[in-house]
Structure formats: C-alpha cells, structure tokens
C-alpha cells in the first residue's frame, strides 16, 4: 500500500521547509526545561496555539511540488491512486507529527501535577487531526501552499489575541490546567469528526481531478 510513498525523497524535496516545524518544538523544550513551575500553564498554551497548528506546515508543503512547482500535470499522469497522492502520504507525515504531539504530552504530564498523559494527547492530537484536515482540503482546493498557512495563521492569532471572544468556532480549549475526560470529550469528538470530514472531502476532490 505504501510502496509508492517515497518518504526520504519527499523530505529532501521539501528542503528547509521540512525542518521549520522544529523551531516551535525547540521553544517548547526550552520552556519545559527552564520555565518556572507555577507558569506551567504556558506550556499548555504553546501546545494549543503553536505546536498543534504547526502541523499545517508539513501538510501544505507536501504539495509544494504539485502546485508551486507546477508538477501536478506530470505527477497526475503517473499510475498512482488518489490516496497515494494524498491520504497515505498524510498518514505518514501526519502520523509522524502526532508522534511528536505524543512526546510533548508525555513531557507535559511529567511537568503538570494531576495530569493524565493520555487525556493531554487526546486534546492536542484531535486538534492536530483537524488542522491536518484543514490544510489538506485547502491546499487541494486552492492549489496554493500559502492558503492553508495563512488561513490557520489568521485563525489561531485571532483566537489567541481575543481569547476566543470573536470567532464562533473554537478548536482549542484555552485550559490552564489538565482537564478531565468529561471536560474535553465534546471538543475532542468535534475536532475528530470535523477533521475526518475535511480529510474525506480533500480526498474526494483529488480523486475527481484524477
């Protein structure tokens, strides 16, 4: 199934763009190692407003060769299924990003008292899935790498600056401490559901183009 997904090549083709999401992770690590423990809630904020949204970056740049280098015509003439162009590649890179989220969740659970690593992962992982869905469908529809980046960038900064008071739809929970399952379940389910819808939509649009 994954035989035509060339991960090392994709990474090389993305060039510097592949390594860019490491910057927010470094910032997170720095805070985790050096931050004051009474300000641990900062780490939760970083997860919601920086680390999870940054998943958009990789997903958008996976299509740089298709749309910014105008390789789509050539690549679409190759004997690949729509899922090999799209979803399966997302599974690999999105999966890799989720592993980073898991790692951060583990670190957080060590740092924040009364926290559950699994619940943290559910919260930030489901948000990441939604961002991946947004990135995928937007890049397929717009054929521009910048569009998903701008869209999510504007959304996240607005939510951050207004603390969720303007926009009607919240991907994030704005929590300052670890939450219980009952407190996150609606958000988690909503994000996963909406993310799956967007992933399916992106896939179907791609399939129709092929």
């Amino acid at each position: 199934m994954f035989t035509r997904i060339d991960v090392p090549f994709k990474i090389r083709a993305m060039g510097y763009a592949f390594y860019f999401p490491i910057l927010p992770l470094l910032a997170f690590m720095y805070y985790w190692l050096n931050g004051e423990s009474e300000f641990s809630f900062q780490l939760l904020k970083q997860m919601e407003f920086l680390i999870a949204p940054f998943s958009v970056w990789w997903i958008a740049f996976l299509f740089y060769d298709y749309y910014e280098e105008k390789g789509d015509e050539l690549l679409f003439s190759y004997p690949l299924k729509a899922r090999e162009h799209g979803l399966l590649t997302l599974v690999v890179f999105g999966g890799f990003y989720l592993a980073l989220i898991l790692l951060c969740s583990i670190l957080l659970s060590l740092r924040i008292s009364n926290s559950n690593m699994l619940l943290l992962f559910l919260q930030f992982g489901s948000q990441t899935v939604l961002y991946i869905g947004i990135a995928f469908s937007l890049v397929i529809i717009s054929k521009k790498v910048m569009i998903p980046l701008l869209f999510v960038g504007v959304y996240v900064s607005t939510e951050f600056l207004t603390e969720g008071s303007i926009l009607p739809f919240h991907i994030m929970l704005f929590n300052q401490q670890s939450l219980a399952f009952n407190e996150i379940k609606i958000n988690v389910l909503g994000n996963l559901l909406f993310g799956s819808v967007l992933l399916t939509m992106g896939h179907l649009i791609l399939k129709r183009k092929l």
Binding site: D6, F9, A13, G15, E69, G71, L74, Y78, P79
Partner: peptide, 23 residues
C-alpha cells in the same frame, strides 16, 4: 509543455523517485 520540478535535487535522485512512482 512546461517541465521543471524538484529544482534543488539531483538528476539521479529525481529519476529514482519517478521510477518508484512508476512502480
């Protein structure tokens, strides 16, 4: 008509990738 892709990669890398895509 317009062919130019993977500009910062090498000829052999790109050929290997296309060969893989061809199965």
């Amino acid at each position: 008509q317009h062919f130019s892709i993977y500009k910062s990669l090498r000829v052999d890398e790109v050929m290997n990738h296309f060969a893989l895509l061809k199965g």
